[in-house]
């Protein structure tokens, strides 16, 4: 995983609340056995019509969405399934951060493990971001600060260890493997 420090990008805004994992990555694309190439299926049922043609009204099919790395979504994005295919698809498409007032638990965890920064902001910041799609926003992971186009700054919270992993491009599996002596001791102690 590549280290991440800052993201400076225009936003894509999807104001609906409760955007669930079945919208982000419909189940029929879950029969893959790799994590690659899921970006083309991202939001497939909103992005393409019944004949597989791009729906011109959907934000990801519009020119202003090209190259955007920050997705601003309505409250409770990522609710539903534990499918990691959802963050894999978002990352593969090019997103590097998801901003909302509330981000579902398992989805947030999965984002953190895949180089996608989940940023939870207050209602008023969120309202500003929703009202100004395409605005230029900075996300500084080291300082945990989001900077709005008017240069006002908003702090956000990321679990410290996950932040350390993102900043340094290390994964948690390696950390867990380094605890194998403690794990063996636990197994011995509890007679497992």
């Amino acid at each position: 995983m590549d280290p991440i420090r800052t993201i400076h990008s225009r936003t894509v805004v999807m104001p609906s609340s409760n955007i669930d994992t079945d919208q982000i990555m419909p189940a029929r694309f879950l029969t893959t056995t790799t994590r690659d190439g899921l970006g083309k299926h991202l939001f497939a049922d909103w992005r393409y019509d019944g004949n597989g043609q791009p729906n011109p009204d959907f934000i990801l099919n519009r020119s202003e969405a090209v190259g955007c790395q920050i997705l601003v979504a309505g409250r409770n994005i990522g609710c539903g399934s534990s499918r990691e295919h959802a963050p894999w698809g978002l990352y593969d498409y090019g997103f590097r951060a998801v901003v909302s007032t509330e981000i579902a638990d398992i989805f947030r965890n999965n984002c953190l493990k895949n180089g996608l920064i989940p940023v939870v902001v207050d209602e008023s910041t969120h309202a500003k971001l929703i009202a100004t799609p395409g605005s230029l926003v900075s996300i500084d992971l080291e300082g945990c600060v989001l900077t709005l186009p008017d240069q006002s700054t908003v702090p956000f919270v990321i679990e410290r260890f996950a932040r350390y992993c993102l900043l340094n491009g290390v994964d948690e599996t390696g950390y867990l493997l380094s605890k194998s002596a403690e794990i063996s001791a636990y197994e011995a102690r509890t007679q497992l």
Binding site: I106, K113, E172, L176, I183
Partner: peptide, 17 residues
């Protein structure tokens, strides 16, 4: 429920963070 990265963590270490 856990994601696939965590499935790998549990397979390898029987533990989760």
């Amino acid at each position: 429920g856990i994601g696939t990265t965590e499935v790998g963590d549990v397979l390898a270490t029987q533990c989760l963070l």
